[in-house]
Design a binder for these strands. Sequence first.
DNA 1: TTATATGGTTTATTATAATACACAAATATA
DNA 2: TATATTTGTGTATTATAATAAACCATATAA
Lengths: 87, 87
Amino acid sequence: MIDAVTIREVKVQLGELCKQQRQRYKISQEDLAQELGLSRYTIQKFENGKNATLDTVLKIANHFNLLEKLYQALKDLENTNDINSLY
Amino acid sequence: MIDAVTIREVKVQLGELCKQQRQRYKISQEDLAQELGLSRYTIQKFENGKNATLDTVLKIANHFNLLEKLYQALKDLENTNDINSLY
DNA sequence: TTATATGGTTTATTATAATACACAAATATA
DNA sequence: TATATTTGTGTATTATAATAAACCATATAA
């Protein structure tokens, strides 16, 4: 393990994933915002790696059908009582 | 697929995971808050499934060594160009 | 070319997450 | 038991995410 992942890098990656998924479905930032009841500026900032609220992130994840996957991943983590068994 | 996972359920699960990990290391909410430069109230609300900011969530994830895992999961999602191949 | 749509940016305002206190109720420890 | 620790809750304030509205540059389409 050379370099640790930073919080900033995760936020950038989250934004990129949103942008990628959005373009996959060929919808604009404005479209996505309206469908989620958010402003375009919120989508804009999130896609550019800025801070956001959990509700915003989960709304976006839900829109791209990633909520169930995330929920199961969290459940799995909770049932993994040894942190080292993840590696 | 009977019932869809809700955003609220994911937030509750996130809070439970935080609480579980924290108790695993036998530290109080106050301890965790101080180590992360957050207030105890922020930890308190997060563990009880309330809304929070991405920075708060990622700080907690990082403290319990879950950031790298999350980052890789996001990378994997980005490289999975077919959403249906996840199932 | 002229429109139209999209993404990036700015400003001002509103909503709310985060903070800093305090205090009571549980929970653990002596 | 009593004492200390931790957790849950409340209030007021501050910081900041979210909103709404413009504006411009670029790309795309007519």
